[in-house]
Each structure stands twice: as structure tokens, then as C-alpha cells.
Amino acid sequence: MAIVRSKRQTRITGWARYSALVAAALLFLVPFYLLVRSAFMREQDLGSPDFHWLPPVWETSNLTGLFDNPAIPMARSLLNSGLIAVTQTIGVLVVSGLAGYGLARIPYRWSNAVFYTITATLLIPAAVTFVPSFVLVSTLGWISTLRGLIIPGLFQALATFLFRQFFLGFPKEIEEAAFIDGLGYWGTFWKIVVPNSFGFVAAIGTITFIGSWNAFLWPLVIGRDQESWTVQIALSTFLTAQSVQVSQLFMAALVAIVPLLLMFLFLQRWIVEGVERTGIGGD
């Protein structure tokens, strides 16, 4: 009797669970839907008092007009964002990967002191250091340059910490075999460790790329001239100044997130796996 009741109960809670999930999923997709819909609306339909589920007229000229509009430096800012995100991702993977491997595997006197110093900087939120960083970068004359936008972001304590934790768990026997075959630390790292850590490297790489592409405060502070705007700064400038057509602004935002969403869809399984294996944190 008790079993029968619990079976029916399971079925009811199962239905309740699915309804809740479907409702929540729909709610989470609403902003994406609104972004796409508004990007293809005409300006007068967007401003009309009635809510439109779909654009009454699909306005594709928002897309073509975006790159012809001299007021929006769309091509340039996309190029800047791409350059910054790619170099920062590669840079962080190389710098933090090497540092993490060294901290995990090379025994030397100060290795613990170095590790704790790096970890201690995690307690200071990066955003709080932005005033002194800004003063430093402006002293170097790097305001409104790609150097000023890229180089300070290359040294990530969190990525270094995570790489160290990951390499500590890497099977040591494989590395020892490589050592016997005459590979040093450098050779073992590049030829044995890196090729066997694809998933983790992909996870850190994806997180870094997304963080870099979506970064706002630092590019806002450093990217003063229009030539050095990233795509987020371009969008934000027109959003807060309300100086261009809203429908075109939505189209610009759509163009700015589509490459990232595609990349995320392909690579998210590595992030999920990385979190499960090592407990990646951060934002």
C-alpha cells in the first residue's frame, strides 16, 4: 500500500518538477527572445504603445545599416574586442599554465611563499585595485592603447591557482616516464602534460575568453578614444547616451553576443567537467 502511494506521489512530483523546469527555462529564454525580436523591429514599431510578439515587419536593414552607420564604430570595436580576447586568452593560458605547473611540480626553496603570495592577492578584489592600476597604466602612457587594455589582464592569480591544483592531480607516473626519456620540465610540460589536459585548458580558456570579451570597467577606464573602444564600450556609450536608434542598438548587441553564445554552446561541457573535477570558482 505504501509503495503504491509513493509511486503515484513520485509521478505527481515528477510532473510538478517538469512544469517548474519548463516555466523557468522559458523565463530564462525571454531576454534572448526580446533581443532577437527587437533587433529586427522597425524603430516606429519598437516605440509603439502595443506589445508585439513578433516584428510586424522584419527589418533586416538594421544589420546592414549597422556597419554603414558612421556614428557606430561597429567593425572597429568588434576587431578590438576580438584582438584583446584572443591575445588575453592565449596569454593567460601560457602564463598561468606555466606558473601553475612550476608551482605544482618544480621543488625549490621559495615555492610555497610564492604560491601563498599569489593566492593572497585573490583576497583583494580586482575591481578595488583599478584606481592604482589606472594611475600605473597612465604613467606608462598606455591610455587608449591595446597594450593598456591587454597587458594588465595577462596575469591572473585565479587561473594560476586553478592550474596548480589541476597539475597536482595530474598522474605523476606519466611525467616520470617522460623524464626518464630525457625530457626536462619544459619538454614534459609541452609534449606530455598539455596534450593530456585538453579539457581543463579548454575550460580555463573559455572562461578567460568570455571574461575578456565581456569586460567592462577596465576598457571603460582605459579606452578613452573611440579607436580603442571594445564592443561593450561602444554598446554602453550608445545605451547610456541614448544617441542612436534603439532597434539598431539591439542589432549591435545581437552581433556582439552571437559569436560568444556559439562558442559557449560548443565548449560549455568542458567548463561543467572542470567544475566537477576541480571546483573552478570565479566569475
Partner: peptide
Amino acid sequence: LPTACSYVVAALV
């Protein structure tokens, strides 16, 4: 999925 979206784009929507 929204994790891949920037605060600027979310702010716009």
C-alpha cells in the same frame, strides 16, 4: 547560457 552574456547586453534588454 546567460553566463556568456555581458552585463551591457543584459542592461540593454
